[in-house]
Amino acid sequence: MREADVFAVHALEEEVFPEDAWSAAMLRAELDGQPETRHYLVAEVGGEIVGYAGLAAAGGQGDVQTIGVRADQRGAGIGAALLTALLDEAERRECEAVFLEVRADNAPAQRLYERFGFRRIGLRRGYYQPSGVDAVVMSRRAGRRGPVGFSRRGT
């Protein structure tokens, strides 16, 4: 993601997360951390931005900052591709663990993260503001990502 993408990403952010969207200024501030501690990317279909994602990484720990995919593009593998790219970057940066928060009312996103080896480790009550929706805290250790869409028995 580049500065030139902020307008389109912010519009998508407001569409995907209408109750608690990041401002354009917040997105720009995140880009200021690239490449030192941040890694942001966009997904395009037909030259149009339909998804975006961001990772913060420092001190051996990664944090998925955001993943958003336009509603009409969900189910096409874009979220999985964005998450794969973030996890690859976390591995490149030698992160021992990756953490994230996901809305407690977003079961599809939780299933996506579980497919990638994330496990629930906690709950943050009223985390998302102003809606007051709880956040499920999830994490995964390095090297635990399995094939997308498949589960491994016994792991």
Rank of each mutant, 00 (worst) to 15 (best):
F17Q: 04
D63T: 12
F99P: 00
A71Q: 14
Y52E: 01
D32P: 01
G46Y: 08
R145I: 06
R103G: 04
A58V: 14
V6R: 06
A11G: 10
R153D: 15
R144E: 11
G143Q: 09
E19Q: 15
I78Q: 00
I67K: 03
P18S: 14
G51E: 06
R119T: 10
V69F: 02
Y128M: 12
A58S: 14
V9T: 04
M138R: 04
T37M: 12
G75W: 02
P130I: 10
D88V: 12
P130R: 12
F150W: 15
M1S: 09
R28K: 14
D72V: 10
R141N: 13
A104R: 07
A56G: 11
D72Q: 11
A8S: 14
V133P: 02
P108W: 03
R153W: 14
L31G: 02
M1F: 09
R145P: 01
L12T: 04
G47I: 07
A90E: 00
E48V: 10
S151T: 13
V50K: 06
A11I: 01
G149A: 09
Q34V: 15
D5K: 04
R93W: 05
A58C: 12
M138Q: 03
Q110F: 00
A56T: 05
V50C: 10
L31W: 06
G60C: 14
P147K: 14
Y113H: 00
G47R: 10
L83S: 03
A104D: 11
I49G: 03
F17L: 08
R144Y: 03
I78G: 00
A97Q: 13
G77E: 03
T155W: 13
E89T: 06
R92K: 13
G59C: 11
E19I: 08
R103W: 02
A25E: 13
F17V: 02
F7W: 09
A43F: 05
R144G: 05
E19G: 15
E19K: 13
G33R: 12
I78T: 02
E114W: 05
V137S: 10
A97F: 04
D5P: 03
W22I: 01
Q110S: 01
R103L: 06
G154D: 06
P35D: 08
P108L: 10
E96T: 09
R28Y: 05
G149N: 09
V50W: 01
T155E: 15
R111C: 05
G126P: 11
E13W: 01
Y52S: 01
E114R: 15
G79H: 02
V133F: 01
L83Q: 02
R2Q: 15
R140L: 06
R145W: 07
D88P: 03
E94Q: 15
G122A: 12
P108R: 08
V9W: 00
G77N: 07
N106R: 09
A57C: 12
A81Y: 04
R141F: 09
D134Y: 06
V42I: 13
M138Y: 03
E30Q: 12
Q65H: 12
G47Y: 09
S151Q: 14
R153T: 11
I67P: 02
E89N: 08
V98M: 02
Q34I: 15
Q129F: 02
E44L: 11
A56V: 09
G47S: 09
M138P: 02
P18F: 12
T155R: 15
S23P: 06
I78F: 03
A57R: 04
A8Y: 05
V64P: 00
